[in-house]
Amino acid sequence: MLEVKGVNSFYGKAHVLNDMNFDVSAGTVVALLGRNGAGKTTTMKSIMQMVRPRSGSVIYKGQDITNWPSHKVARNGLGYVPEERRIFTQLTVLENLEVGRQPPRDGCTTWTDQMVFDLFPNLAERRNNRGKALSGGEQQMLTIARTLMGNPSFILLDEPSEGIAPVIVEQMARVILQLKSEGLTVLLSEQNLHFAQAVADGVVIIEHGTQKFVGTLAELQAQPDIRDQYLSV
């Protein structure tokens, strides 16, 4: 569904991503693992074209989306959920959802306010509250809900478990599994191996902007040396 082919990205002169190559098949959850600064977020932003790859290409559903403006990438069915809970704090929950709303797309679930509230019951009670009044966990839910309103077929989740309470982390894991069961494809970045193990089918390990391992979760379990080298727990 998504192919990342030989992508190299730079911030100014700094070479942040070095020849990334991996695929994500439809209906699977792939976890991008690596420490802070390894290049996980840059990989996501390179897919969304929020960072323009200097070379290589990103193919989505057979279409080369490299160098598209990011709003066009988003309208094409890729939904990005940023880290650090970048919700619009001055807007109400409903208005946040409104910003994410896009016209229905063939072959994708058409999300309504009610459907995301069913998925995140906490948000329903707070629909008229401003984003800044939400707790960290609720904000994290809102970032996901907001992206779902764009009816994506593929979502990129950047560090969904970072900085939130363990109870909410469990809820996040359940939501991801539920989205997968509804046919969404997910690429998520994580530092937390436990979390990845709970939800992912495939794994990509990156360090210093270079991918060190690509395979299924089972394959990773079979190679404890790799796991220990890059993902010391």
């Binding site: 363990p166 109870v167 469990e170 193990q197």
Partner: peptide, 18 residues
């Protein structure tokens, strides 16, 4: 555990599998 730590059921189950 209820308000913060969670039951840990999900992860523990996975970890035990692993």
């Amino acid at each position: 555990q209820e308000v913060y730590l969670g039951g840990g059921t999900l992860f523990n189950a996975v970890q035990e599998d692993a």
